[in-house]
C-alpha cells in the first residue's frame, strides 16, 4: 500500500489514419453483436440522438449550441486543441458523419496526456498549500451493447455513478459549481447533464440554448472546452477532467474561471458501459 500515488493517462491517436482510428475506437463497443452490424462510434451516439430528438423534441440548433459553447470555452484554455470560436452555422453546415451527427458534433482525434498526484489530505499539505479534496467518487457499469439498455437515451451507468458520488460527498446538485462531462459527441453532453440530475430528462437542450450551461450560467458545463474543443485523447481524458477541476478550484483557470468551491467530473467508457464520477472540493 502506498500513501502517494500518481494517476496518469496518455493517448497517441494521430499515428494512424481515420479509418484505423474509427476501427480501433469501435472496439469499445460490443464487437460480436454491434461491430459485425457495421457500427461506428459516431453511429452509436447518432442512434441515441435520433431516439432523443424524436422523444423530447431537441432541435438541431440546441444540439449545435453544445459545440458552440464548448468552443467558446476552449478559446480561453491554453491547453485546448481547438482555440477557435465557431457559430451555429459552422456546426449545422459541417459534413454529415452519422445522421443526425455532423463533424462539429464530434470530439476530435487527439494526442494528449495528463497526470494527478493523490495523497492523504494531511500529507498533501507537505507538498502544496492548496490541496484539492476528493469529496466523493462513484463508478457504475451497464451493458456494453446500446441495444441492451432499457432506455436508449439514458446512460443508466451515469445515473448510478452520479448518485453514488453525490451520496458519498453528502451534497446536493445545487452545491456543484461546474461539471466536466464526457461530451464525446454533442448529444452525450445533453444526456450527461440530465442523467447526472442537473435537470429533468428532455430539458438539457433548452438549458443549453438559454446559456445556463455556459460559464456564468446556472450550471457551467465543460469550462475547459470539454472533449469537443479541448480534445479527446481517449486514455487521458478522465485525468484531464480532474486536472481542469483542480485548476478551477485553485482559482488558476484564467479567463474561464468559475467562482466555486465544488466541481465534478464525469467520464464514460463506450456508449455508457462504464462511468466514473468524482466530486472535488477546495475546503
Amino acid at each position: 500500500m502506498s500513501d502517494i500515488v500518481v494517476a496518469a493517462g496518455v493517448e497517441k491517436m494521430t499515428d494512424v489514419g481515420t479509418e484505423v482510428t474509427t476501427d480501433v475506437l469501435a472496439a469499445a463497443a460490443d464487437r460480436e453483436w454491434e461491430g459485425i452490424a457495421g457500427i461506428t462510434f459516431p453511429g452509436l451516439y447518432a442512434m441515441i440522438a435520433t431516439d432523443y430528438m424524436h422523444r423530447y423534441g431537441l432541435t438541431r440548433e440546441q444540439l449545435a449550441q453544445v459545440a458552440v459553447k464548448n468552443h467558446d470555452n476552449g478559446v480561453k484554455n491554453p491547453n485546448a486543441q481547438f482555440r477557435k470560436a465557431i457559430t451555429l452555422d459552422t456546426v449545422i453546415n459541417s459534413t454529415l458523419v452519422a445522421d443526425p451527427l455532423r463533424l462539429f458534433d464530434c470530439s476530435p482525434v487527439t494526442d494528449g496526456a495528463a497526470a494527478v498526484i493523490l495523497a492523504p489530505l494531511e500529507r498533501a499539505r507537505e507538498f502544496t498549500d492548496t490541496p484539492i479534496k476528493v469529496l466523493g467518487s462513484g463508478q457504475a457499469s451497464s451493458t456494453i451493447a446500446l441495444h441492451d439498455r432499457k432506455d436508449i437515451s439514458t446512460l443508466d451507468a451515469t445515473v448510478a455513478a452520479g448518485n453514488r458520488a453525490f451520496k458519498m460527498a453528502g451534497i446536493e446538485r445545487k452545491d456543484i459549481g461546474f461539471v466536466e462531462v464526457h461530451d464525446c459527441f454533442t448529444i452525450a453532453e445533453i444526456c450527461a447533464i440530465e442523467d447526472l440530475g442537473f435537470c429533468k430528462k428532455g430539458e438539457a437542450g433548452r438549458l443549453t440554448e438559454e446559456g445556463q450551461t455556459a460559464i456564468g450560467g446556472k450550471i457551467p458545463v465543460n469550462p475547459s472546452g470539454g472533449l469537443k474543443a479541448c480534445g479527446h485523447p481517449v486514455g487521458a481524458t478522465g485525468i484531464k477532467q480532474v486536472y481542469e477541476t483542480v485548476k478551477q478550484l485553485r482559482g488558476d483557470a484564467k479567463g474561464r474561471q468559475v467562482d466555486t468551491d465544488i466541481g465534478m467530473t464525469h467520464n464514460v467508457g463506450g456508449t455508457g458501459a462504464t462511468v466514473v464520477c468524482h466530486i472535488f472540493g477546495r475546503k
Binding site: T22, M47, I48, T50, T95, H147
Partner: peptide, 24 residues
C-alpha cells in the same frame, strides 16, 4: 425500427456500403 442513423463514414467491410442505415 427503434432508432437509426445513416452512416456516412465507416471502415473495413462497411466502407464500400456508405451511406448505409444502421438501426436498432
Amino acid at each position: 425500427v427503434v432508432t437509426f442513423s445513416i452512416i456516412r463514414s465507416s471502415s473495413g467491410n462497411f466502407k464500400l456500403l456508405t451511406p448505409y442505415v444502421l438501426a436498432i
